[in-house]
Computed example of a mutant assay.
Amino acid sequence: MKVSKGKWKKYNIMKKDEEISKHLPDTRILTDKSLWKMIERYRCVVLKPSRGSLGRGVIKVSLLVKKSYEIHFENQIKVFPNKEQALEYINKIRLPKKRYIVQQWIPHATTTKWERPFELRIMVQRMEESPNWVITGHLAKVAAVGYFITNVATVAPIQEAIDDSPVKSNITSTLLLDIERLALRVASRLEKYYPKYRNIGLDIALDQNGHIGIIEANLTPSIKIFQYLKNKEMYDTVKLYRKGRVD
C-alpha cells in the first residue's frame, strides 16, 4: 500500500513516537475553524502546503493587539483589522488546489552577526543494502533579509550560528549530540513507512533556550546547499551517501 509523503502524514507518523513527539509543533489540517483555534491558542502559526517544497506558499499569521492580524508572506508583511480581511488575503496568496496544514510557530533563535533567524539542516543517510543510518552533514540556514523561512538563506557552519546567538548562553554540553540522536530516531521511525528512502533532510529550529523543534523531515532533500560551505568535505560525504555505494 502506498503511503503519502505529505507533511501531514509524516507528522502523524512521527507523533506516535513518544520521544519525537516532544519536539513536534502542534499541527492540524487547515480549515477556517482550525486556523482561528490555533491562532487563539498560540498567537502565531504557519500555514504550509502538505505537499510542497522550497518554501513555496508558506504563510505566517500572527495575532496582534485589538484582534488585528499580521500576515508575513515571502518578504512582505501586511496587517489586517479583522478575520474576514485576513482570510481573504490568505486565500489570495496560498497555492491553489493544495491541501494545507496549520502549524504552531516555533520561535527561531537569531544570529548576532546577521540579526536574522536560522534553522538547522541535518542530513541522515544510509548506503544501499545497509540498515545503518549515519549523520553525514549539518549546517545552519540563515534567513534572507525580510524572510521568516530559511529556504532563501545564507549558509553557515552549525556551531558558528549557535555561538553567534542567544542559544550559546543557554546551551547544554549535549545539545548537538541530542540533535543527532533525535535525527537518527526520526530516520529509524520513518524508515518503517518509507523503506526505499535512504536520504532524509531534517529541518530543526532552536529557540533562544536551545529547545529542539522539528520543522520538517524531507525524504528527497536537495544537497546543493552543502556545497556553499567553505569546507567541502561534508558535501563530498553527503554526495557519496546519496550515490549509495562506494565504487
Rank of each mutant, 00 (worst) to 15 (best):
K2L: 10
S4F: 04
K5N: 08
G6Y: 02
K7G: 01
K9M: 10
K10N: 05
N12F: 11
N12C: 00
M14P: 06
K22N: 08
K22F: 07
H23Y: 11
L24R: 03
R28Q: 14
R28P: 03
R28M: 11
I29V: 12
T31G: 15
D32M: 11
S34Q: 11
L35I: 14
W36P: 06
W36R: 13
I39G: 11
E40V: 00
C44Y: 06
V46M: 09
L47I: 13
K48T: 04
K48D: 03
R51W: 01
R56M: 08
V58N: 09
V61A: 15
L63T: 08
V65Y: 11
Y69V: 08
I71N: 03
E74F: 10
N75F: 02
Q76E: 13
I77M: 14
K78E: 13
F80R: 00
K83D: 00
A86I: 06
A86Y: 12
E88P: 02
Y89A: 04
Y89M: 03
K92N: 13
R94P: 03
P96V: 12
P96M: 11
K97I: 05
K98H: 15
R99G: 00
R99W: 00
W105G: 08
H108W: 01
T111R: 10
T111H: 15
T111Y: 10
T112M: 11
R116S: 12
R116Q: 12
P117L: 08
R121K: 03
R121D: 02
R121T: 00
R126N: 05
M127T: 01
E129C: 07
P131H: 08
P131R: 11
L139F: 02
A140H: 03
K141F: 05
V142F: 09
A144Q: 09
V145Y: 01
V152E: 02
I158E: 12
A161K: 12
S165H: 07
V167G: 03
N170W: 05
N170F: 12
L175T: 09
L176Y: 03
I179F: 03
R181C: 02
L184D: 10
V186C: 15
V186P: 05
A187T: 05
L190M: 15
K192Y: 01
Y193M: 06
Y194V: 04
Y194E: 00
Y194G: 05
P195S: 11
K196Y: 11
I200Y: 14
I200T: 05
G201D: 08
G201E: 02
D203I: 01
G210V: 07
H211I: 05
H211W: 00
G213S: 13
I214C: 05
I214K: 08
P221H: 04
I223Y: 06
I223D: 08
F226T: 01
Y228M: 06
K230E: 15
E233M: 07
Y235I: 08
D236M: 09
D236R: 14
K243S: 02
K243N: 00
K243H: 12
G244M: 09
R245N: 07
V246A: 13
